[in-house]
Design a protein around this nucleic acid. Structure first.
Lengths: 181, 181
DNA sequence: ATAAGCTTTCAATAATTTCTGAAAGTTCAA
DNA sequence: TTGAACTTTCAGAAATTATTGAAAGCTTAT
């Protein structure tokens, strides 16, 4: 398994970015490799291509499966597991987005909900709770909104992205028509 | 500087989440502390409250300033720097969002743009480039869209969040009216 | 000029995370 | 039942990241 310079650049870049996207370097590289390869790869192919240990590949694949970003496939008469990137580009984006929401927002929302049930004991706590309320409402909005995104078809998503700067205009339009607020 | 249990829980939680949000534990704690405190704090207040070294606080504040999340203030006749969280909740959210976009998306977009200028040398590279194109277009959409968000007033943002599940309906509405696509 | 009262820097150390590879586990064909 | 062809696990090693604290830098009052 030998990578062309261009493909290598792409894979290595995804490695660098990996940690910023919520997984580690090798997991990033592995995913990139699976995404730009048309054909499914075995765990050994991956280990060779990236010069990492077989054990590390196994861990990485487990991680990618927990993100639902890869799929296992089998070839008839071959005992090996073959891996490939799951779904189209929109599916991938949605999965990463969802997974990150779960890890980055949900736990905080839970904490804030709990804290907001208590009555503040003094002024300091009252102010603190007010801030927590604001953060809570914001995060709840983001969560709802992310559910919305999750349920959109690729076409709608595509439209949304293409909408670009026409976005606030649509909001205003809606305001006028529905005549609320 | 002694924290009440509730406030401590909040601060510690932000510490835990810190790394998922793009900064480290102490930076997360520091920010939480500044957000739930009505009054500005000195670097020493922070060090005491969180039981961390003065040097670490200095580093952390530098980091938070690079995210534009804190402001320095001065009290008349006092040489110390006082710090507080910058802006309201929407400002904070926008700054975190923007900063993360810069770190998580922009570098990849640059790489992809470069790669897409070259002509693929073979079928493998052609397929790879096709994938890169898709990712590029998606990220460009997200970027545009994030600029849009950035320019929205708190009121518009609030409306957007409240819109919740009515969102795709608005999109459809727009489709019918404008009668495009 | 000096020193008091701050803040910042940075080399050394500590803590955490990632990676390796050998051993154990699984599955299947013969 | 054995063993060949895989995969997974996990303890220890390596790499990376965060933290400390002492020293160096500012700035202002005297």
């Amino acid at each position: 398994m030998n990578l062309s310079p261009k493909i290598e650049a792409f894979v290595m870049h995804f490695g660098e970015m990996g940690s910023r996207w919520g997984f580690n370097r090798t997991v990033g590289q592995m995913y990139a490799l699976l995404v730009i390869n048309e054909k499914p790869l075995t765990a050994n192919d991956i280990a060779t291509a990236l010069s990492i240990s077989r054990g590390n590949v196994s861990m990485g694949l487990k991680e990618l499966q927990s993100w639902q970003l890869v799929q296992v496939q089998h070839q008839p008469g071959d005992r090996k597991d073959y891996y490939c990137a799951a779904g189209d580009i929109w599916t991938m984006a949605k999965r990463v987005f969802e997974e990150r929401r779960k890890r980055e927002i949900d736990p905080t929302l839970t904490l804030l909900r709990d804290q907001l049930l208590d009555t503040p004991a003094n002024d300091t706590e009252a102010f603190a709770q007010q801030r927590m309320r604001e953060i809570h409402d914001l995060l709840e909005g983001v969560t709802q909104w992310s559910t919305e995104l999750h349920n959109m078809s690729p076409e709608t998503l595509h439209k949304l992205v293409k909408l670009g700067s026409g976005f606030s205009k649509v909001l205003e339009l809606k305001d006028k028509l529905v005549n609320k607020s």
